[in-house]
Write a protein that binds this DNA or RNA. Structure first.
Lengths: 189, 189
DNA sequence: GCGTTACTAGACCGATCGTTATAGAAACCT
DNA sequence: AGGTTTCTATAACGATCGGTCTAGTAACGC
């Protein structure tokens, strides 16, 4: 059921993940939804996002850990993962956290934090596989990668093209030598 | 009325821009909606996106053209614009095209193209103000900037922080020297 | 066996969705 | 003024939304 919720969230954000559609697509028992998720839709979305965070973090580590010695390869590999997800779903599936974040009403504080948690979890994983970079550079660069990945999902869907992923991977990889060369004391401003 | 539609799209994507909410918030005559927009919600969204594209392109040019000689300043200025929009709306308003793109059902071909048009228009404007860069580098870098901006909107909203904009601006600015130095024949792969 | 709890089916609620229909007011042409 | 077109108000449509409720079955402790 959480799996169906995640897929619908990835497809069209909060709006597409109606409770009726979730139970319909999941084939799960319809009456038991509010038994396991007493708080309703918000709780489903929250837990789906939390589960997604762990799953995607694990996949990132599994796939990028072998390239730890070559940060540029890590960058390219990261965006290749996004491209693959987009291609395999014919541009239907994006990151659920991104889709939800843009659907948020200002009062959905918990859901907002759940989205933030996904990004934070992802950035942490990237920091780990970017260990070769100077310490002070890792976190901002990981954040940049996460942001760019979210945007690439958006643009890829709009253009029905994988170019945004390739574009992002190639160019952010170009940034790696600069990040390696610059020591902490050499930071701009 | 298009203005109200745009604001609602920026706030929460297609789902938040219900026709009733549009007429309510716009104060516009309620009965006349389907007189001016016979195709209904899709048409409103399409025209709102088209109008937004022109407006944001004009603002980008107006604000960044003075810095054309310094691409790094252009980059920082671009993301400062995003940060300002997010800050002024208390993280409520993002790019409508991004929000709509992640809400799209696969059959909304026209709306998808409208989103793509916004990104293309924006990238074109960035290419124009990045004229100092080598020609072959401009378009991909402009695309990267657009993608990263979309992602920064997402992460800023999730984190309720402007850090993603600063992060993006600072680091993409670091990429400028590399792009300037590398000639066309020096392209990787 | 029984009693209790965990779970499920499905109808049902009011609200809101996008859209259409009807009918009346405003504006315009001559 | 009369007639025509343009616009507006309001009600209503069926569909779907998130959520509740009741009745019932399945599973378990004892």
């Amino acid at each position: 059921m959480l799996r169906a919720a995640t897929r619908l969230l990835r497809r069209g954000g909060l709006a597409a993940a109606g409770v009726n559609r979730i139970v319909a697509e999941s084939g799960a028992p319809k009456g038991s939804l509010y038994h396991f998720f007493p708080d309703g839709k918000d709780q489903i979305a929250r837990e789906a996002l939390a589960a997604y965070a762990e799953r995607v973090a694990a996949r990132v580590r599994e796939r990028l850990e072998p390239m730890m010695g070559d940060p540029a390869a890590v960058v390219r590999g990261f965006f290749a993962m996004g491209a693959e997800a987009a291609r395999r779903s014919d541009y239907a599936l994006s990151c659920p956290a991104g889709a939800v974040a843009l659907d948020l009403e200002p009062d959905d504080a918990e859901l907002r934090r759940a989205c933030d948690g996904v990004f934070a979890r992802l950035a942490d994983e990237l920091v780990a596989v970017l260990a070769v970079l100077p310490a002070a550079r890792r976190a901002p660069f990981a954040g940049l990668m996460v942001s760019t990945m979210q945007g690439a999902y958006i643009r890829a869907r709009a253009a029905r093209s994988l170019a945004p992923f390739d574009e992002a991977g190639e160019q952010l990889a170009l940034l790696v030598p600069t990040l390696r060369a610059t020591t902490t004391q050499g930071n701009r401003r």
